[in-house]
Design a protein around this nucleic acid. Sequence first.
DNA 1: ATGTCGATTACTGGTCGCAG
DNA 2: CTGCGACCAGTAATCGACAT
Length: 338
Amino acid sequence: MTVRFARAGFPYEAMFDKGDILERLDIAVHWGHYEIRVLRFHLTSFEPGRIINFHNHSTYEFHFIPRGAGRVILGDQPHSLSEGLLYLTGPGVMHYQEADGAQAMDELCLHVDIVRRPNPSVDPWEAAEAEECMQKLNALPLRPAADSHGAMPCFLQAYEACESKRIGYYTDIRMQVIGILLKTIQAYDSGDTGTEAPSRDMAAYRYDYAVRYMEANYTSGLRLEDVAEKLDLSPRQLQRIFRGVDRERPFSRVLEDIRLQAVCDRLRTGSLSIERIAELEGFSTAAYLHTVFRKRMGSSPSVYRKAKQSELHRHPADTPPGQIDHSPNEVNIYEPNV
DNA sequence: ATGTCGATTACTGGTCGCAG
DNA sequence: CTGCGACCAGTAATCGACAT
């Protein structure tokens, strides 16, 4: 039986109200190639002088002291416990716990089973990071450490999420479980890491971002400077990025391709006037559309429309709506003059 | 890797005239 | 009326060279 020694201002006090609320949940977290299943997840209080005799588990038990004092023997080494300390008892670690003779000792406990379950579809970066963390977890020294990275508040957050039943609370709780694992490792860790977070190929990312932005905004007089500004780059640097990705297609060419593709689409499937199409697809005038279209497609827009629409009538089943190849670079009788 | 500058080239927008 | 082509001046894009 546990006895509570409440004190005003103890942030975890609320966790005594529904002590087993987290344990009633079946919590499983997949992390890289590991599955972490929560067995116990609670706040408990040991009355003064209370002893938990030597025992061990086949699983991982994370212990945190949010209040009070006591003693733990890990293996054969005794250590004193005080507010703010944590320790881990991994599989097979014999341990003995005792609350101070004069004062109670509270303990936040997360008891988990961790099983390796290889999963080929897992993100390799996450897998590498989880692997490194598990190696560190298995090599943690058998001694208490200060909760320097704030693992204990994760207990309270998990409890509050569970109690509130707010949207996403199960995910929130699982994140707190991972948080407790990580912060425990960090409490012992020197800070060096063998794995790095995934980094982007910045040129490819910027190119992709720029093209997407152009596709979404090409009708509104888009300029190199506008796109560069979106990427927080100089126009010159954006030009270099376009040149680096595809030497043959600078900014203006990519923009022109996007516009021509839309024009071709309208010519093939609609009956809008050339002037109206030019207006809708970002060409200042029909005259300019004619110039560009002829240069790239080898014919005028109206000739193209006649040819494509008669083609559609001859082979309606070959080109269902929405699956028409309207690339300006298509190879046909109207191949653009590159 | 990125920014600035300057020379060069290409694009843009307006206008006009011609043809069907 | 619509589509098309030509012309021209202003603007934007391109790119090498150089600096940070």
